[in-house]
Structure formats: C-alpha cells, structure tokens
Nucleic acid binder design. Structure first.
Lengths: 347, 347
DNA sequence: TTTAGCACTCTATCCCTCCGAGTGCTAAAC
DNA sequence: GTTTAGCACTCGGAGGGATAGAGTGCTAAA
C-alpha cells in the first residue's frame, strides 16, 4: 500500500510541474522536464496506479493528471523538502519588520504585509486570542470634560483604547481613582472571568472611591465595555487582490466565492483558531482544498503557524493560497516570520 | 446646440435602462419600457443625433446604444432627480451609525460599512486631513518601565496612539512633566508647523522639566514621531468584493486593475483630496469614467462629499461604483450619511 | 416632422470538423 | 516480473461556416 520510490518521485514531479504551470501534466512532459531513466510508457503505468490509489486526478480522458487533495497531502507530508530561506530573503523580511514600532498591532501589520509581498498569496495575522489573555492595566485618561479615553492593556501586549462619554462634572482625579481601583482589583484576571459584577466589586471594595452608586456604575459600565471590546481579535489580511491573477480564479464566480468568505474576518479567524486547536503543537499547520471547512476555499490551501508572546502560545499567522501553492517556500517564509515575531515579542 | 426636451427624455431613459440591465438599449426596447408617444423610428433619429453629439455610443453597428461619459455627465448634471431617502432606509442607516461609539475612527468605520451595505458598491471614509488639524492634546502614559503609550489628540477629534520605548529608569512623574510641557507649548499649533525643533523648544522653555539633554531629546523624539504619525490619513474602504458580481468586471483582468489601484489606500485618498480641492464647495462631487485619473477606474464612477467636524470642513466620504451606477440613489444615501456624521461630530 | 417599410450589418450561437495531446492496452523485449 | 514500443482510441479545443435576430439607417410617404 505504500508508494515505491519511483512513484513518489513521479508524484513529486507532477506536483512540482503542476504548481509551476497550472496545467495537467502528461507522461511526455514529465519525461521532458525530469531525468527519469524510464520511458513514458512506464510512467503512464505509474500514473494510472497513482490515480487508482487516489493521489492523482484526470480532468478528462485525454488530458494529463493533476494532483488530488490526497496527492497534495502526501506531497506536503513526506515528499517536499523544506529548506531554509535564502539569506537575502531573510534580510528583506527582517528589514520590513524592523520598520514597525513597538506594539503588537504594528508588528502584526508589518508581518502580514511582509508575508503577502514575499509569498505573493494572501497573508493573515491575528492578535493573540482571548483565552490566553488577562488584563494587566486599565487607564482612563480625561481628554476633555465628559470625554475619557479608556486604555486597556492585556497580558500579551495588546493595547486597545476606546473613547467614551461620561458626565461632564467628573474630574480627572475621580476618574483616576476609579480606574486605579478597577485595575488593582482585576489585573491578572483572565478576560473570560471579567464581568460587570467583578468590575463593580473591584471598584466598590476600594475605600478610596467615593461616588454615588448610579454615577459610579455609569463609569464602570464604560470601563467594562472597553475591556470586553479589547478581546476582539484583530485580523490583518493582505494581498487578496493577487488571487485574481491566478488562472484558477479567472472565473469571477470562484473569486467571488472566495472573497465573500474572506470579507468576514471573523469566519476566517475562527477557522484558524479551530485548526490551531486541532494540531496546535505542530510547527506549522496545513489544510488543503476540501479539508478546509470554509465555503469558497475548495481550491485553496491554508498554512498557519503560531507565534509566542513572552514564550507562551499566543496568536496565529498564516497564508492562504491556491492548492497549487509553493508549499515548501511558503512554509520556510512563514516560519521565518514567526521566528522574527517570537524574538521581537520575547520581551 | 442644447438638447430638446424629447432628446433629454431619451437620454435619461437610455441611462436608466442601461443602469438597470447593463445591456445596450435599442429603439424598440425603449418604446416598450417607456411611454414615448412617438414611434421607434423617431427615437432612432434622436438616438443617431445624440450619438453624433457625443452623448451615446454604439458598441457595434447592430447593437443598441450605451451612454458615453459625456452622456452620464449630462444625466448627472441636469437629468436625474435626486430625491430624499425613504424614511425606512434612513432609519436603517441611523441605526447602523448609532452602534458606533464616540470616536471619529469608529464613526467613520460605521459610516463606511453602512454606505457599502446600502449602496452595494465600494464605500470610502477618510479621517480629517492634516491641513485642517491642529494638536489639542498630548498624553504619555507609562504602561510599564521603559514602555510608554503616547496619545495624540487632534482638533478634528482624531485620537491616535503609539507605543514607544524609552529608557527604563524614567518615572511616570518625569514623563508626565515632559508631556505636559510639550502639550502646553504646542496645543493649538497646526500639525504642519510642528517639527522636532518646536517640540524641543516647547519642552526646554518649560522650567519644570529637569533632565539631561540627551535623555530628554530621546523622549521628545518619540513624542514627535508619534505626533507626525497621527497625521496619516486613515482610509476605511469596504465592499470591494461586491464589484466582482457586476458584469463589467466579469473579465478578471479588469477587476484586477481596479483592485490593484484600490489596494493602495494612499492613491485613492490623494485622488479624493484632489477632487475635493477642485470643487470643494459643492454638496457632492462626481467623477465619471475617464474623468478619473486613477488607473483601472475607467469603468467606474466616483461620488464623494465632505463632512464637517465642529462646523468646519474636515474629511471625505464617498462611493466608488460602476459608471452604470444608480447615481440619484447613491447621492441621496451618501448625503444622508454625511448629514448624520455632521450631526454626530458637531460637538 | 413623423412614420412605415425595408435592406443591411454585425454578433452570438450552434454545429461540424479536424487536430493533437494524452491515454490504456497489448505484445514483445529485457 | 518489469519495461518498452506501438497503436488504436478518446476527448477537448480551435477553427470555420451557416443561421437567427436584434438593431440600425435610409427612403419615401403621410
């Protein structure tokens, strides 16, 4: 049931050729482009066998073969050779990342942009996810009477802020007391455990806060919603438009299906999360074609990996491309970007 | 040289029909769909005349007519009837906007999303532009030793923040002194006049700041770059993927050209600005087809308008759609959104 | 000025043929 | 047993009329 050596080589060669040309590969073309020491007839036999085993498909009788999902899977699992990035390319990526400043959002944006540029496919970078985050700081900054900027800092380095309205007559002093009390009471608490009740308790247990309940609650509510809002995953996606240049999406309806799905950040983020949970300990995760449960991505493949903040598993970055993707190259690129992120976020 | 009444009606009818169907309009179809009290032959004469005058085009001899850019222009300038939004639609938009919270970025995001949803085209919302902004506040918030969040507040209500690194040993006290000094020195100053020199002067003129020059300059530099970065226009664009459903973009290469250009926020923002300067006093601005100087938008039209912050001209919102756009409807929608924005940003 | 009538034009569509790439099978060769 | 040469077969795509139909412009009459 295993594949003998030549069959492996044949499968590998077919994937390589198809990736390069997007055209079904025939036995003749295979001989021409690779140094098989056998005739085309032999390859034909092998190819027929590979098709019977499910690794190849034939668009129609008189065409060459293309890899099936199973074929790509085999290729990815045991045939391709992932090598290191060229120094040059590494340097270019490094440069792009070094331009971003010192905050996770900015870093991720730069990472996403670098990935999209380098791979030529769609890149993805997501902020650390809720479950691994706890609150470290809560600051409330009065911008003008009645307007306060709530700054929420999470453990993974995520900083979010939100402008809120409060009654005009509250002073910066009072606001500061409240935010200090809440911060003290909640810092270190996982986001999932924070509720309006815990927020209120934190503030009211603190002796220093002296405000009528109704007024206090109003401020606390704003603080609470600001915290809750901070757990929204941000998704940085770039390079979508490049997919239109690929022959597999020359039919606009396909492209539309893809873009429709991709325009829902949340859907994609959720899926990436799901994948990360399924095989999270791996260095990188791959989903191919029909393996992807998102609509409109049947002709795509998904490569993601997980970056760390302060040594702990945090968020994901990834690439979406056609099934006919340069897997080895993309993997080395994505890995490099992840390493760079890890390093910058070690702290 | 003007158009007689019937010719106007004919042109209007052709635009309406072509907008609805995206198919060349013939004399017969025109008679069928509209109550012209003349025969098709008469219309044919009119259409031939309109073509001679440049308002119509014929894809080929045996096809109907489609409006030329000039035809659309005439339609937009004097033929179409812009009426008010239905109460229902107004309510829906209002609802969408009311969900956003109290900050310009959030409002613009909501406005952009509402416009895209309601029009079915591409929406655009840009933050107020630099030239009309001055600094109102500068806050520096120590997140942890060595890490400071710089919050910049501009006159038009724009709030930006940026995380920077400073030497570990500086205290919140010291940082506060510096930011207060800078804020006092610069508040009210147009962004364009702020330079590293003015920042440094502001800090050093202030007696309270006592730090070695080198150290101080380091912090000031971070403050300065944070301020400078705040003048970047943010562009919120939504609904791009909807264009793929339109017949005019069923050819992927066209869609690609469009998307390539649109993926450069800056290009689009610059163009909108240019248009706003050309005819800024108008209630809304329209550019049709070839009038648009951006590459890849030959088949598109652009409708923009300017919203106010505190009663003063600020930024722009707009819609990009096919030339074959429902101009009247889009204009009423965009106007409504602008009014809503103006109201919310009156302050 | 409008209209009916008509010849004309041009595209889109269908159908047919043909070409060639690629196949699978068979029988011989190694 | 594996490999190879040879060959008949399949099928999609390109190319080439022929046809239908929508739409036109023109002419001559109303």
């Amino acid at each position: 049931m295993g594949l003998d050596n030549r069959k492996k080589e044949v499968l590998q060669a077919i994937v390589d050729d198809y990736v390069a040309t997007c055209e079904p590969v025939g036995s003749k073309a295979l001989i021409d482009r690779h140094d098989f020491m056998v005739s085309s007839a032999t390859l034909r036999n092998d190819m027929a066998e590979l098709e019977r085993m499910g690794y190849l498909e034939q668009p129609h009788t008189s065409a060459g073969r293309i890899p099936s999902d199973k074929g790509y899977r085999e290729y990815v699992n045991s045939l391709m050779k992932v090598d290191h990035l060229s120094d040059e390319e590494g340097k270019e990526i490094k440069e792009k990342l070094s331009k971003s400043f010192d905050e996770i959002a900015s870093l991720l944006r730069a990472a996403s942009s670098a990935l999209a540029d380098k791979t030529g496919y769609i890149s993805l970078a997501m902020t650390p996810k809720l479950t691994s985050s706890y609150l470290t700081q809560l600051k409330m900054l009065m911008i003008e009477p009645g307007k306060v900027l709530v700054v929420v800092v999470l453990s993974a380095g995520v900083v979010k802020n939100r402008m809120v309205r409060i009654p005009d007559f509250l002073t910066q002093e009072q606001i500061l007391q409240i935010s200090n009390a809440v911060e003290q009471g909640l810092s270190g608490m996982p986001l999932s455990e924070i509720s309006m009740i815990t927020v209120a308790t934190a503030a009211k247990d603190n002796k220093k806060v002296e405000l009528p309940d109704a007024l206090l609650n109003q401020v606390l509510y704003e603080a609470y919603t600001a915290i809750k809002q901070a757990d929204n995953l941000d998704v940085y996606m770039e390079g979508k438009h490049r997919m239109l240049a690929l022959p597999e999406f020359s039919d606009t309806r396909r492209a539309q299906g893809l873009f429709d799905t991709l325009s829902h950040d949340g859907l994609v983020a959720g899926y990436v999360d799901e994948v990360a949970q399924q095989d999270g300990q791996k260095e990188y995760m791959i989903r191919i074609g029909q393996e992807i449960t998102l609509e409109g991505l049947d002709d795509c493949s998904f490569i993601t990996t997980t970056y760390n903040v302060g040594g702990k598993v945090a968020g994901n970055i990834g690439v979406i491309g056609p099934k006919r993707m340069e897997y080895a190259k993309v993997i080395s690129q994505i890995n490099f970007v992840r390493m760079m992120l890890d390093e910058k976020l070690k702290q």
